[in-house]
Design a protein around this nucleic acid. Structure first.
Lengths: 221, 221
DNA sequence: TAACTGACCGACCGTACGGTCAGTTTTAAG
DNA sequence: CTTAAAACTGACCGTACGGTCGGTCAGTTA
């Protein structure tokens, strides 16, 4: 049994409140807002239902608190991803690997945020867009634009589309983890880093054999 | 007001049952299983709640019927996607465009299936994996493998990973449609076919400028 | 000791849920 | 027209829901 994820006891936080948040993030991530009952949270947290309402004014308030904690934590950890040094290739490779690692390390928070961002109503979706992915997305775009000015990245490509591809491929791979288990062909989903490396390789150099280049020999090493 | 999606009146189907299925697929797609009440379905369908139980034995049974109808329809339409003629590039391009078109045309069914496949429990996820995406995924893999044997596709790439990238990018783009509206940078999400074309271009030829090739001039045309 | 506070609980309230049933209307074949 | 099955309905049932309330208890301050 590993420690609960994403909810460390903060100063001024009673153990009951911490238990509520810890149980809540797990249940909401697994079953969604409507699939979770306050009785279920109380039981999982080992506290009374009334105690939850002592700390949070409503189910919605509890959900938002958990959502915001997850968003803040994810945003903070993700902020540092794009700062790596090295060449263009290596930076993208490192970013992708670190982003994927983060998704799996904080899988409860990630699942919760993805759920809300992709399936939630527009209001909450916009909030997540602004608070969590917005900065990283824009940063990634600016990195790609710099790559274009340096002549490394093709100028005929939309940097926003490339950024979306890079982040979206990781996010979707994380989402599809469960269903990929059912496909024996998807060996890339079983070994860590295998997907991220292969994905970045495809995004950078393409799937096709280049007809007149020397890149093939370089890749073979 | 456009016609309801994905639920055509079949022979032996009363108008009430058709209305129930039509309302159900919309509500379940928008709000998920737990967010929908039978009273809500009845009201949206313009029938009594008891009438639903005349046609379906339970809420779960109604949901499964809708899910299976969506799955069958999606599977049938998708089966014909991989049969296109032409060169390797064109086939993949056409497949991607048609798949994306299908996602948006049948957005309710697609949303429902993606929801269930990515967030549902393992049992239902496996069912969808087998009945809907399984065949297409395997077909796509075999096409890519043929591309490898023909020397068009790089041999050092995992065909399954490439297939997953191609289909996953489209699926995630469809899922992220709502949140992409909030990003002014994401112009590629506003114009039809723009994403699919750009995405396939990146997947085929890569993001990087090829150092010693002649492909750049070809692409510029 | 007395006053006060925040954490916590069991019992309860009104409501909406999934589901049932007796009975009515519609449909269509004989 | 008769009749039986199918379509359909309003009223109802038991339950679980989100939320409230009065009160207990440990710890702090004065």
């Amino acid at each position: 049994m590993q420690a609960s994820e994403g909810v460390q006891v903060k100063p001024g936080q009673s153990p009951g409140e911490a238990a509520i948040l810890s149980a809540g993030v797990r249940l909401f991530a697994e079953q969604g807002f409507d699939g979770v009952s306050m009785r279920g949270v109380a039981q999982a947290a080992g506290v009374s239902k009334a105690n939850i309402y002592h700390h949070f004014s409503s189910k919605e308030a509890l959900y938002l608190a958990i959502l915001q904690a997850s968003a803040a934590e994810t945003a903070a950890l993700i902020e540092n991803l794009a700062d790596g040094a090295g060449g263009f290739d290596e930076r993208l490779k490192e970013f992708s690997k670190a982003y994927q690692q983060h998704l799996f390390d904080r899988h409860l928070s990630s699942r919760l945020l993805l759920r809300e961002a992709l399936l939630g109503d527009d209001k909450k979706g916009k909030k997540i867009a602004d608070q969590v992915v917005g900065n990283v997305f824009r940063r990634m775009i600016s990195i790609l634009r710099a790559g274009q000015e340096a002549g490394v990245l093709r100028e005929d490509l939309d940097p926003a589309l490339c950024a979306f591809l890079l982040m979206g491929a990781n996010a979707f791979f994380f989402q599809a983890q469960g269903i990929l288990k059912h496909f024996p062909e998807a060996g890339f989903a079983r070994e860590g880093d295998c997907f991220s490396d292969g994905m970045v390789e495809v995004l950078l150099h393409g799937m096709l054999n280049q007809t007149g280049g020397v890149a093939d020999q370089e890749r073979a090493s």
